[in-house]
Structures are given as C-alpha cells and as structure tokens.
Design a protein around this nucleic acid. Structure first.
Lengths: 147, 147
DNA sequence: CTTATAAAGTCAGGCAACCTGACTACCAGA
DNA sequence: TCTGGTAGTCAGGTTGCCTGACTTTATAAG
C-alpha cells in the first residue's frame, strides 16, 4: 500500500520557489558541514553575516533581523559562548555594547560567503549569465508584486 | 547615526529566491487572514493540504512532511481541537487511525488552494505565461542542480 | 541642575514546532 | 505461538522566537 497521502495539492509558483530555496539552503549547509562548521544553525549564520568590520550594536542587529532585542541577545550569547563573537563597550554610548567577530568568527563568515558565492557560481554555470539575469529579474517581479 | 550594520553581505541568487518566497508566503497568509482564518499557522496549513479526500494516516502525514510521527501527532491534535480535522479508525489496520477533514477543514483547504491559485494568477498576469514557464524552468534547474 | 523620558541591554517566563526515548496495542511471518 | 516490526501516544528536551519587568545610562525640558 502506498504510504503517501492521496491528495496532490494544486501546483503553484510558490511551491517551485520554495523547493529551489530549500535546495539552495541544504547545499549551503552541506558546504558548511564539510568545512567543519557543523554546529552553525541558520539563525547563527543570519546573525554572523550582519556583523560589520568595526562591530555592530545589539540593537542594530535585532532591527536588521526584525526580531526583538531579547531574541538577538540570546543568539549573540550562544555565539559568544562558542567563541565566534566577542563583546566590547561602545565608546560613544555607555549603555550600548559592540558585538565583534573573533578570528574564528571571521573565518566562519568567510566560509559562509564563499559557500554562497560558490553555489551562485554553480548555478550560473548551469543556467548561464543570461539565465541568471532572467531568474533574478523574474524573482524581483514576483517580490515587488506581492509585497 | 545609522542604525544599520555596516556590512553588506554578498549578493547571491539564494537571497533573491528567499525574498520572493517570503513575499509569496506573506501574501498568502494575508489572504487567509482576510478570509477569517487568522488562527492558521504555516505548519497547520502544511498539514491540512496533505489530507486526502478519503482521509490520511498519521504516519503518511509525518512521512510526507518529513517530520517525526510525534510532531505530526501534535499538529493533528491541535487541528482536531479547533474542529478542522476528525479522527477515525482504519478498517484495514487496527493500529492505524485515519485523519479526515471536517466541513470546516474542507472549507479552509478550499480557501488555501484558492489563495495559492489567486497569487499564481496575479504573478502570471504580471510576468506573462511565457515568463512563468521560464521562471518555473529556471527554478527547477536550480533545484535539480543543487539537490 | 534637576527631573522626565527614552533607549540599550538583561533576566524571567512562555510558546510553537520540532526532536529523542520509552511505552502500548496490534499485525504478520516463521 | 513467539518474535520482530509498525501505528500511535506520552513524557520530556531544544531552538528560536515572543512579552513583560527590570537596571543603567543618555538626553531633552524646565
């Protein structure tokens, strides 16, 4: 007996976009695992990627990710404990703290960027520069239409 | 002073795909809210959409969503409590139970499908049938390449 | 200079959507 | 009939968010 539900939900472009995204994400974290950063979650990488070269405030981080400062705090705390981030005072504001990448964190961000650009390059190799431009434009159309 | 982190992460196709998906999802749940189904989470709709006309086994549901049977159980329990699903025995297997849509659940699924198809139609109106076919093909390329 | 308001970060507690492990009830083959 | 596997449930843990209630520091108003 088949183990699958009998219903085949209607085919729509949202499902196609979702599948492509999931494939990209999976490939991305497979790359990360291969580079020895298996303990990095999606939320972790989303935080790390936002840290500027001179460091970034907690509040700016929270605003950029559209999460509460408490949620951002929790994420930063976890990355602090694992040695990817370090905390310092903000010289211009005694209330604020500056989150900075450690050398380990910087290495991780480089791997993250490299993984993304590698996947980007692989996709380009497959569908061509023209196809890439088309895809980008079409996705932008979808986004602006629906937003 | 700017409140944004100074780092601008490298632009890659994964980000474009992600933004388009998020826009689709947001539009989808805005539609759902407008129809009076504001209490439906993403996980809820993911379950509902898999229920076949003759009902579906818990295990089949879990397998289709690639989650554990325990997680599926929890979701079904919540939808049961809100009257969208009902549970019956499987006549062919004393261990199994069949999850079925109630009338209310069926109405919700129809709204879900309609919302998806409406968004699909709006996107088609924007980028044309040809653009849609292109987008679908390009996304499928990305998916098969990276999977 | 004081006082009010607000903003940055922290702590406590809660919730949704998953997970593992352990269990009961049932099925099917040797 | 025993034995191993499958369907579902219960208990408890984790992650990534949330709201609310603080403390400390900055800033604007009187």
């Amino acid at each position: 007996m088949s183990d699958r539900p009998e219903r085949r939900p209607p085919d729509h472009i949202g499902a196609d976009i979702w599948r492509a995204f999931k494939a990209f994400e999976a490939a991305m974290y497979a790359d990360l695992d291969a580079e020895g950063f298996a303990d990095i979650s999606v939320a972790d990488s989303d935080v790390l990627v936002l840290i500027g070269p001179k460091g970034t405030r907690m509040t700016a981080l929270a605003a950029a990710r559209r999460i509460t400062k408490q949620a951002a705090h929790e994420q930063v705390r976890s990355l602090l404990a694992r040695g990817y981030l370090e905390l310092g005072p903000d010289p211009t504001d005694g209330r604020a703290k500056i989150v900075r990448l450690t050398d380990q964190g910087d290495a991780l961000v480089k791997v993250l960027d490299a993984a993304k650009m590698d996947l980007h390059a692989r996709v380009t190799a497959r569908i061509g520069t023209h196809g890439m431009a088309q895809l980008k434009a079409l996705l932008a159309d979808v986004e602006t239409l629906l937003r």
